[in-house]
C-alpha cells in the first residue's frame, strides 16, 4: 500500500483514539483497559495470514504459536471484560435516586433495574 495512505490512516486513527477515551471516569479505567487489550488481539488476523504463507515447519510452528497466543488475548480479553461489566449491571437496589445523587455517569448501573 502507498506509504502516504498508511501514514494518513495512522494519523487519523491516533486522533480518533485520543478523542474516544478523553473523558472517562476512573471507575471504568480497568474495563476500558481490558477492552482495548482485547481489541489488539485482532493480531489473530495477522497470525492466520502468516500461517497461510508458511512453507517450512519452523514458520508453521511459530505461526501456530502466534495464533494460540492471539486467540487467548482476543477471546479471553473480551470474556473477562464482559464479566467485569456484568458486575455493574442491575446491582443497584434503589434505582433512580441513587443515580441522581451520585452523578449521571454512574446511572448506567442503575439502568437495568433493581434485580437484587
Amino acid at each position: 500500500m502507498d506509504l502516504v495512505a498508511i501514514v494518513t490512516i495512522f494519523v487519523l486513527a491516533v486522533f480518533v483514539g485520543f478523542e474516544v477515551v478523553s473523558k472517562v471516569s476512573s471507575t471504568l479505567h480497568t474495563p476500558l483497559m481490558s477492552g482495548a487489550n482485547a481489541i489488539h488481539g485482532v493480531i489473530l488476523v495477522g497470525a492466520i495470514i502468516v500461517a497461510d504463507h508458511s512453507e517450512t515447519n519452523l514458520e508453521l510452528g511459530l505461526s501456530v504459536a502466534a495464533i494460540v497466543l492471539a486467540t487467548i488475548n482476543m477471546v479471553g480479553g473480551f470474556v473477562v471484560t464482559d464479566r467485569m461489566l456484568e458486575m455493574f449491571k442491575g446491582k443497584s437496589g434503589t434505582g433512580k435516586t441513587g443515580a441522581d445523587k451520585t452523578g449521571a455517569d454512574k446511572s448506567g448501573a442503575d439502568k437495568s433495574g433493581g434485580a437484587k
Binding site: 490512516i9 486522533f15 483514539g17 485520543f18 477515551v21 482495548a36 485482532v42
Partner: peptide, 17 residues
C-alpha cells in the same frame, strides 16, 4: 489496513488512558 486501524486505536487510547 484493519490491523493498522485497530492497533493505532489501542496505541492512542492506551496512551491517554
Amino acid at each position: 489496513t484493519l490491523l493498522i486501524i485497530a492497533g493505532t486505536l489501542v496505541g492512542a487510547s492506551g496512551t491517554i488512558l
